[in-house]
């Protein structure tokens, strides 16, 4: 009788143990869910990342992400699903393709033109002191001391 009960108990453990382990494996943690949710925005609450959004709708979306992870979907597949369902606005980072590529390129192009403009201004500033240096001796001609001018005139007279 005792042996029979033990056998049933052992069989029960053998049946339930893999299921329990399997269940633990297929239940993604909150951290896993939030890691993906942090790259998505709540489709209905403006400017609220999905991982910190406290509405009922957001908790349902997080639950959906949990189910999708458990079903073996990758992060990009989940993001694609959200875009298909709710549009590109749910993405925290706009995609680097199509029209949204402009959003990524525009700052780079802007910075490039800024650098070019700055280089132009700096070159102009560098050129201005040189111009002064060329002009200066001519301007200073009139400021020759009277003594020096007298000596020059004497020298010129001696030459003739």
């Amino acid at each position: 009788m005792k042996r029979g009960a033990l056998s049933i108990l052992a069989a029960g453990i053998l049946v339930l143990l893999p299921q329990t382990l399997l269940g633990q494996e297929s239940a993604p943690s909150d951290d896993q869910v939030n890691e993906i949710a942090s790259d998505l925005y709540c489709p209905v609450c403006p400017n609220t990342p999905l991982d910190v959004c406290e509405t009922l709708a957001c908790s349902e979306w997080r639950e959906q992400i949990r189910e999708q992870i458990a079903a073996g979907m990758s992060e990009s597949e989940i993001a694609d699903y959200f875009v298909e369902q709710y549009g590109e606005r749910v993405l925290a980072k706009p995609r680097t393709s199509g029209f949204t590529l402009v959003l990524w390129l525009l700052p780079v192009v802007g910075i490039g033109f800024g650098v070019l403009a700055l280089a132009g201004v700096l070159r102009k500033w560098r050129r201005e002191p040189d111009a002064e240096a060329v002009v200066a001796p001519q301007d200073q001609e009139g400021s020759v001391s009277a003594e020096a001018r007298q000596r020059i005139e004497e020298e010129l007279r001696n030459l003739s």
Partner: peptide, 27 residues
């Protein structure tokens, strides 16, 4: 902007029989 699971539960709860579909991409 709904989850399919939530939407189907809602439809079942209120016994909605008219045409129902998700607004894909909220277009």
């Amino acid at each position: 902007a709904d989850t399919e699971k939530g939407a189907l539960k809602f439809i079942e709860e209120y016994g909605l029989t008219y045409f129902q579909g998700p607004d894909l991409g909220t277009r």
